[in-house]
Computed example of a mutant assay.
Amino acid sequence: MRKIYEPENMMEGELLQAMLASEGIESHITGRHLLGAIGELPVSGLLGLAVEDGRAEQARQLITEYNGAFLLAGDEPDSYPDVLLC
């Protein structure tokens, strides 16, 4: 397995992991058990998203496209501007 991305937090890591799974790419979040040691360990660089070597390029491309996506006009409700309801 190869580390392809460093999520900012566990929520982002799990969201990207689910997105990759929907595309048939199995992934693993490394460092999730180190989060409880913040204060003793450096705050950044603890989490990583890893995939099989043969799927790394495809996974990187999907994450790049995901991070570059913009909201489409009309995706946010009028009663809650700048808030996307899921």
Rank of each mutant, 00 (worst) to 15 (best):
M1E: 13
M1I: 11
M1K: 14
R2L: 11
R2I: 12
K3P: 10
I4K: 06
E6M: 04
E6Q: 06
P7V: 10
P7R: 08
P7G: 02
E8F: 10
E8G: 14
E8I: 13
E8M: 11
N9L: 09
M11S: 07
E12S: 03
G13I: 08
G13Y: 03
E14T: 00
L15R: 08
L16W: 03
Q17S: 00
Q17T: 01
A18P: 07
M19F: 02
L20W: 00
L20D: 03
L20T: 07
L20E: 01
A21H: 07
A21N: 08
S22Q: 13
S22F: 09
S22M: 11
S22R: 15
S22H: 10
E23K: 11
E23I: 02
E23A: 14
E23D: 09
G24M: 08
G24F: 04
G24V: 07
I25Q: 09
I25R: 00
E26F: 07
E26P: 00
S27C: 05
S27E: 05
S27T: 06
S27H: 03
S27M: 00
H28D: 12
I29Y: 02
T30W: 02
G31I: 09
H33M: 07
H33T: 08
L34G: 02
A37E: 15
I38V: 10
I38T: 08
I38A: 09
I38G: 00
G39Y: 03
G39I: 00
L41S: 10
L41H: 02
L41I: 11
L41F: 09
L41P: 03
L41C: 06
P42F: 02
P42Y: 01
V43W: 12
V43K: 14
V43C: 11
S44W: 11
S44M: 12
G45I: 04
G45P: 01
G48V: 05
G48T: 07
L49V: 01
L49M: 07
A50R: 13
A50K: 12
A50C: 15
V51P: 08
V51L: 07
E52W: 02
E52L: 01
D53N: 08
R55K: 15
R55I: 06
R55W: 05
A56H: 00
E57C: 00
E57V: 11
Q58A: 15
Q58R: 13
A59H: 06
A59M: 09
R60F: 07
R60H: 10
Q61S: 14
L62R: 07
L62S: 06
E65S: 02
E65W: 01
Y66V: 03
Y66P: 01
N67F: 03
N67V: 06
G68R: 04
G68L: 06
A69G: 01
F70K: 12
F70N: 11
L71Q: 08
L71P: 01
L71H: 10
L71E: 10
L72Y: 08
L72R: 14
L72S: 14
L72E: 15
G74T: 05
G74A: 03
G74H: 06
G74N: 00
G74Y: 05
D75I: 04
D78Q: 13
D78G: 13
D78S: 14
D78H: 13
D78L: 14
S79F: 15
S79C: 12
S79V: 12
Y80M: 15
Y80W: 12
P81N: 09
P81L: 05
P81K: 05
P81H: 04
V83L: 14
V83T: 15
V83F: 14
L84D: 09
L85Q: 07
L85F: 07
